[in-house]
Design a protein around this nucleic acid. Structure first.
Length: 288
DNA sequence: TTCAATGTTTAGAC
DNA sequence: GGTCTAAACATTGA
């Protein structure tokens, strides 16, 4: 499930419980999830102490005491579940059928055991991955990957956004928002939401955006991301219900998944189209 | 049975 | 060279 707010939620939850725990075991049930030689991964991970858990773009980052950072991408259906030794669960990512009571389950591909609890990396569709980079070269690695600015950082000013739009003026706005090298962390849900906020149709060519629309879109991106983090993402806290009900942000979505329903702003029936291969939801009444 | 799913990459067409 | 679409990855469920 995860876009920036969901991964941020997971990072914060894990940061609250994992640091200073010692990794005492590692089970790799599906080796293809680990994008480096499994032996090298194991050698650096087992016996290490967990440092900071943080996030960049949609990547979850776990610093460990061997000077490495574990990088996890959840892609479409990944989830991370922390089960403390007392049995308390913290879940992030896609809800799993049947809830979280039985762990590990058929989708638990990587299991990291520590003295304080166990981290399960589950992924139904197996698109996610685990990498490992020396912490000292993490920034450099991220730069090489080409990620754009964090939308909630001070660096992401209106001027920076305007410059981004100038670089991509012939493209359509929604796929550009979702391009991780343009801005980091915006996915399909929050692209639709930010465009709804700014009353901009997702198919608009960037050069047709007026100054007020560009500013509203910049505000919309930050507003939507901030709100989603506040509510712990759109499904990230599905663990509260055993049957995988969606998370706290869902009632606040105004575009995603609302095709066929009246627009919350103007009442027009919302539409869904396919754009760049992704379901795209908008109001034909007030998004021009 | 067919299609779509919160992501990303790649091949090909224009 | 730039931009766009479809397909691929694997699985499930509507």
């Amino acid at each position: 499930m995860p876009e920036l707010p969901e991964v941020e939620t997971i990072a914060r939850e894990l940061q609250a419980v994992m640091p200073t725990s010692r990794i005492i075991g590692l089970e790799i049930r599906l080796p293809k999830m680990i994008k480096l030689p499994v032996n090298r991964f194991r050698r650096n991970v087992v016996g290490a102490t967990v440092g900071r858990v943080h996030r960049r773009a949609k990547l979850l980052l776990i610093d460990i005491s061997t000077g490495q950072t574990i990088i996890i991408h959840l892609k479409m259906s990944g989830q991370l579940i922390w089960r403390s030794v007392t049995g308390r669960l913290r879940v992030g990512g896609h809800p799993i059928p049947g809830g979280t009571e039985a762990l590990p389950n058929a989708y638990s591909h990587v299991i990291v055991a520590t003295n304080r609890g166990t981290l399960f990396f589950n992924d139904q569709r197996q698109f996610g991955f685990v990498k490992m980079i020396p912490t000292a070269s993490l920034e450099h690695w991220l730069e090489d990957e080409g990620y754009g600015p964090e939308p909630l950082s001070d660096e992401f000013t209106l001027d920076v956004f305007e410059e981004i739009l100038r670089r991509h003026r012939v493209k359509r706005i929604k796929p550009t928002l979702m391009d991780q090298t343009v801005i980091a962390g915006i996915g399909n849900i929050y692209a639709d939401e930010a465009l709804f906020y700014a009353k901009i149709r997702p198919t608009r060519r960037i050069h047709t955006l007026r100054p007020d629309e560009r500013k509203n879109l910049w505000k919309g991106i930050r507003h939507v991301m901030t709100l989603a983090i506040k509510y712990k993402g759109t499904t990230a806290d599905a663990y509260r219900t055993a049957n995988g009900q969606p998370g706290g942000m869902l009632p606040f979505l105004r575009a995603y998944g609302r095709d066929g329903l009246p627009c919350k702003r103007c009442g027009t029936i919302m539409k869904k189209i396919t754009l760049a291969g992704r379901g795209t939801h908008y109001c034909p009444g007030c998004q021009q």
